[in-house]
Amino acid sequence: MSKPSGEQSRSDRRAEAYLAPETLAQLSPFEMRARMIVEGVRSGLHQSPHQGMAVEFDQHRGYVPGDDLRHLDWKVFGRSDRLTIKQYQQETNLDVLLMVDASASMRFGTNPIKKGWGRTDASERTGSWTKFDHAVATSVALSWLSLQQSDRVGLFMFSDGIDQMIDRSSGQGQWRRIVSKLNSSPVDHGTNLIKTADQVLGRVSNRSIFVLLTDFLVEPEQIQSTLARFRHQRQDVLCLQILDDQEINFRFNGAESFEGLESDQKLKVDPRSIRDEYIKSLREHADLISSTCSQFGFDHLLMNSHESVGPSLGRLLARRSIWLKRNRAG
């Protein structure tokens, strides 16, 4: 595994544990900026807000009155006597802002920690690979990928508001700072997505891509309201919903007593007897998130914390690339 910098600290070694070679291998073909390229196509139709930044040739098209004559491809005109306009893809440095949920609900996990895996405050406390660990692993991978593409990467850790943050940067030490911050953050409070969104959006003026890593175990109204805020700011959001396998499958052998991680609710019940109903509710909740994201043009990915980060994330990025190409062709 390669490293962004030469010196290895303790946090680096822990961070490395999150970047399994297969994860990087699965993610590397895809570029985080792809979505922003689409943004550029869209902006070409109007006015790119990112002019002056790096662009690259994309395709030719016939001249129509009103086109900027500076974009005429004279060489083509010389060879074919046709006025052809050179179109360019707007290429910008992408700001990737990772929003990692550090609320208490993320502390849940049932996958036993294995040797060599990264550890966070949550996994240290529970002894399991928690949803927070999975979010951290995903964040580390994405930040690594983004920094490799010279994108600026920032970090917000939130619960009932922003708990900690690292400003955007594409510098060499940024990845290490991010990893260090992720590792050291306590995971305790409740979740307030709306407040967090307000705080985050108050700090970001330019268009960025927000990667929201959370379990979304809040009221649907809160989710809709949060995503609406991002949409209103014309931001792009990649919703990565992280759930533990036990939360998804709800497999138990007998009666259990449940206690809310973010509430005082307690219930003794035989989970087997309510499994179907539970899964139905969970499915409806996930569908609601998905439809909300779809409505706002955001991506939604439900990640099982028992599965590797790479494949699922790779599938999402692949999907985004396909979508991109389709839009280009159109």
Binding site: A104, S105, M106, R107, F108, K131, D215, L217, L243, D244, E247, E256, S257, F258, E259, G260, L261, E262, S263, Q265, L267, V269, P271, I274, R275, E277, Y278, K280, S281, L282, H285
Partner: peptide, 12 residues
């Protein structure tokens, strides 16, 4: 069991 998705359990 400390459970995150309590609302689904309670609803179910």
């Amino acid at each position: 069991i400390e459970w995150a998705a309590m609302q689904f359990i309670i609803e179910a």
